[in-house]
Each structure stands twice: as C-alpha cells, then as structure tokens.
Amino acid sequence: MKRQFLTGHEVAVLACIDAGATHMFGYPITPGTEILTNWIHHTQKNKALEYLQTEDEIAAGFAVCGAVMAGEKTFTATAGPGTVLMQDALSMADGMRLPFVCIVAQRGGPSSGTVIYSQQEVNLAIHGGNGEGMRLVYSPSTVQELYDMTRKTFNGAWKYRFPSVVLTDGFLLKTRQDVVLNTDYPNVEAEPLVHEKEYKHIRNIYTVEEELYEVLQEHKRDFDAMAKEVADYEAYKTEDAEVVIVAHGIVGAATKAAVDMLRESGKKVGLFRPKTLSPFPAEALNNLAEHCPSLCIVESSMGQLRDLVKQALTVSAEIHGLYKPAVGIDVEEIVSFIQENYQ
C-alpha cells in the first residue's frame, strides 16, 4: 500500500470511484466544492465517469433519484444550506427507498452561517425529511474512516435501499494528510430498480392513509433489521472508565487524544464514539452506561448528539456536556473540561 499526501476531498472521491460510482450530480458549495471539482478532474482522465453540475441542489438530488432508478451508482455532495435544499429529493428517496448517496460537508449554521466547519447537520442528515428519519448516516473521524465509510455508505445504500449519508465536515475534508489507504473492500453491485420497457410503480404518494401506514411499518421492520447489521461504534478505554465521553466525527478523534492525556494524569476516562449516527448503536451504549452511568457529550453543536444519546438510553445515566456550536474543539479543551467538571 502506497503512502500518499491527500486531502479529505481527494480521499472521498477515490472512495466513490472505488465503490463503483459512475455519475456525480452536484452544485458547488463550500466546504464540499472540491468533491465536485476533484470528481470532474477524474472524469477528464476516466471516460467511464460522468458529471453534471446542476442549477441547484434540488436538481442535483432529483438527478440522483432518477439515475439510481436506472441502476447507476450515483451520488451527490453538499453542505449547509445545500443540505437543506437536498431534503426535497432525500425525502423522496426516503419514501421510494432509493439508494441515494450524499456526502454532507457540515458548515456553520443556521442559514449560510460559516463556510468551514460545524457538527450542526446531524438532525438534518437523519431527520431532514417529512418522514420518520430512516436513513443510514456514517460519521467518520479520520481520513481513513472517510474512505471506509464512503465505501460502506454505497454498499449500505444498495443493499438495504435506504438513503445513505456520509456526514463529514470541512476540517476533515480540507485537511491534507499523509495516509496509507486500505482500499481492499468488496462492493455491493448496483442494478436497475426499473428495467428498460418494464412498467413498475415505485410510489412516493398514497391516496389511502392506511396504505401508507402499512408501507411505513414495512420500512421500519427493514430498518430495524438493517440496524442489527450496520450499527457501529468505537469504545476506547471504557472497561474501567468512571466517565465516558461520547463524541462523533472529527471531535471523536480529538477526544481520543484527550482520553490518552487524561489517562496519563490518572483519570479513568473512556470514549464512546458512534460510527453510525443512524441507526444509532443503542444497545452498545446502554451496555456501557449500565456499568458507567456518567456520560459527557462533546460536540460542535448545542446538543444534536446529546439528543440522539438521550433517545437511545434505556438505562439511567447522568449526562453533562461540552457544547460548542460551529467551532472546533481542541484536545486541550476537552482535557480541561473533564479536569474541571469531574473531580
């Protein structure tokens, strides 16, 4: 395996190509623009790859819906207000169970906010549609994970037929880093949802309430079955922990380093990091909270991860948190917070 010096954008695009993606539909928006420009760069060299820069995110999203129905591995990438616009198509994909893949580069909000970083699009990624939020959402914390989870997102989308999101941010995407990518990964093949000359009614609208109710029950059964196979997490130094920090994405990486520093000073601290925010690894969290009921949430939002944790918990736990919407959280800051609040 070759040592390379790559940005997160470049790694994400490599993962899409290795996953077998052939088309990208997108509209540029910081900090996700370079996914589109890097993909375009690859299309110049590889004639099997196609792209279309659409007039907005709504058009990009519906183009993905159409292309996946024709059996093309397709994706889009967006950020912030673009993720808001993308909900229209994503919600259709929720209803029609389309293998819709979207890379979301979180930026500060609300509205245009700031252009590089936040963890404020968790709710939007999971619950942005006018439905029940049955989506597969991965949250990578390192460049290698960005690669792995992009591959898994394509596989999950095409295997389980739920819209699937790689939820990342401008820090991870813009960071250029030395990496040795492990690219050895099997692909789930794409196939047309409707074959040529075939008539098939894939619905996103119903005239009878009870009919939709039955369909949603089926979706829920499928989602719960998928959860058993894909819900994923990292538990780091939690065996004897007296406090467990819960963090995701790049904040999870900072927390891991903070745990090591705190352990050196004798604090029994661990990390629980959900790799899938949806489905959430609820069983693992509850098992952990049973022997360590002191949880500290660390996130670059005002509590979007905390709400997922509270929803997942069936055992009682004391929850505190370091909530810093739209700004990065440094290792030293996490260390200080734990030292000050957990004597």
Partner: peptide, 9 residues
C-alpha cells in the same frame, strides 16, 4: 501519527 489536525497553541 497525528490524530487531530488543529491545535490550541
């Protein structure tokens, strides 16, 4: 190896 790309000081 570097685990987090930003720093405070």
């Amino acid at each position: 190896p570097i685990v987090y790309p930003k720093f405070k000081t």
